[in-house]
């Protein structure tokens, strides 16, 4: 069981959360020419690397906020969590 510290509600179990994927993917800017390759990278292509991974989770059965989680994809260790709009650097 993963234990994720929701920045709004505190430490909760994984059951309350839903996974939203890679948090570093940026939607191409609107009102600008977007190449097929850019869309492709946004919609489909993922790095999905082993190790530290910044990802989106939604506290679905809690405050329903989207949050960012820094987690190791090999060990499942969670390092830090952030609010969705918080700087994660």
């Amino acid at each position: 069981m993963l234990h994720i510290k929701c920045p709004h509600c505190g430490m909760r179990s994984q059951n309350e959360f839903s996974y939203g994927g890679d948090a570093t993917v940026k939607r191409p800017e609107l009102n600008k020419e977007v190449s097929d390759q850019d869309w492709n990278n946004f919609v489909y292509n993922r790095k999905s690397l082993r190790g530290k991974h910044l990802e989106l989770w939604q506290h679905l059965s809690g405050c329903r906020q989207w949050i960012k989680v820094e987690r190791d994809t090999a060990t499942h260790e969670i390092f830090r969590t952030f609010k969705a709009n918080e700087d994660n650097s």
Binding site: Q14, Y19, E55, T73, T75
Partner: peptide, 9 residues
Amino acid sequence: YNSYAQRGN
């Protein structure tokens, strides 16, 4: 969720 751990939860 993305994972390389060959063990589950």
